[in-house]
């Protein structure tokens, strides 16, 4: 099992590394500018490895640039969400009264179903990457804040934090020096969870046509393919639908494997054998 965890984690990291490299080097790898038009609906050939779409863009280039869009949104949203969520979680765990208020807000956010609200908001805004990021951020921080808070509460009850307080350590110092380092592993796992969530939701919104029509993500490529009336008639789906779809699947799979490996390593409850605990 220990070996299996390591293998899965490495496979996941490998997949993610490939996508990150593609995203960063997109302009050098992509054979065409994704907005450049040539003959529409061309089948794969040596000139267009994955053919062209209904308005003549090179699909391979679209997908390569799409990697940028999808990963960028996921990364920015997850990073900011972790920053906000962790800060609020730390504060909520450390200051009781403020914590109570923050947690009630979190409760409400977690009860309201995310996806319908996100769709309604996205539909009433001009679709753009930045608007999408803003919408995802509304909910992104909530779960992290809750998880971090409960961890802080556990940590707080450990004696050394009280001891520091007695010799006059300031609250900020305690949060920074003693509590933060202990919650970092949790934050990393949460980062991955949030990234998976954002990749999925962004792809979904885009599939419904609510993504950025200019900076097209994988989901948006799929949207245009799905909207094309002859998509199922011939084999067009093979180069227009399969590749962007598989990109989403592989990215999520990579993140899932890394997250799973981390979680197994970190969670002592899952680590111990199924019985024989609590003696």
């Amino acid at each position: 099992m220990i070996e299996g965890r390591k293998i899965l984690g490495s496979v996941g990291l490998g997949i993610l590394a490939v996508f990150v490299i593609v995203a960063v080097l997109a302009p050098y790898i992509a054979p065409y500018n994704p907005h450049q038009m040539s003959r529409p609906m061309e089948h794969p050939s040596s000139r267009h490895l994955l053919g062209t779409n209904d308005i003549g863009n090179d699909i391979l280039s679209e997908i390569i640039y799409g990697t940028r869009v999808s990963l960028f949104i996921a990364f920015v949203v997850s990073a900011i969400s972790m920053l906000v969520g962790t800060s609020l979680g730390l504060i909520a765990g450390y200051f009781d009264k403020l914590g109570f208020v923050i947690m009630r807000v979190v409760d409400i956010f977690l009860t309201i179903p995310r996806l319908p609200l996100i769709i309604v908001i996205a539909a009433s805004m001009r679709p753009s990457i930045w608007n999408l990021i803003a919408i995802f951020l509304i909910f992104g921080w909530t779960m992290t804040a809750r998880i971090i808070r409960s961890e802080v509460l556990t940590l707080r009850s450990r004696y050394y934090i009280d001891a520091t307080k007695m010799i006059g350590g300031s609250d900020c110092y305690i949060l920074w020096r003693h509590i933060l380092p202990n919650v970092i592993p949790l934050v990393v796992v949460q980062f991955i969870m949030e990234a998976i969530h954002v990749i999925f939701t962004e792809a979904g919104l885009s599939f419904l046509g609510l993504g950025d029509p200019v900076a097209r993500s994988w989901g948006m490529v799929l949207h245009y393919a799905f909207e094309c009336p002859i998509i199922y008639v011939s084999d067009v789906w093979m180069w227009w639908m399969l590749p962007p779809g598989l990109c989403i699947v592989l990215t999520v799979l990579g993140l899932t494997f890394v997250g799973y490996a981390l979680e197994e390593t970190l969670d002592p409850k899952l680590k111990s054998p199924a019985y024989g605990r609590g003696l």
Binding site: F200, A203, G204, F207, G219, L222, F226, W237, M241, G245, I248, V249, L250, V252, L253, T256, F257, Y260
Partner: peptide, 13 residues
Amino acid sequence: LSISSFPSFFLGI
């Protein structure tokens, strides 16, 4: 975990 990595619309397609 693997089948859960498929977005439902892609799976449907």
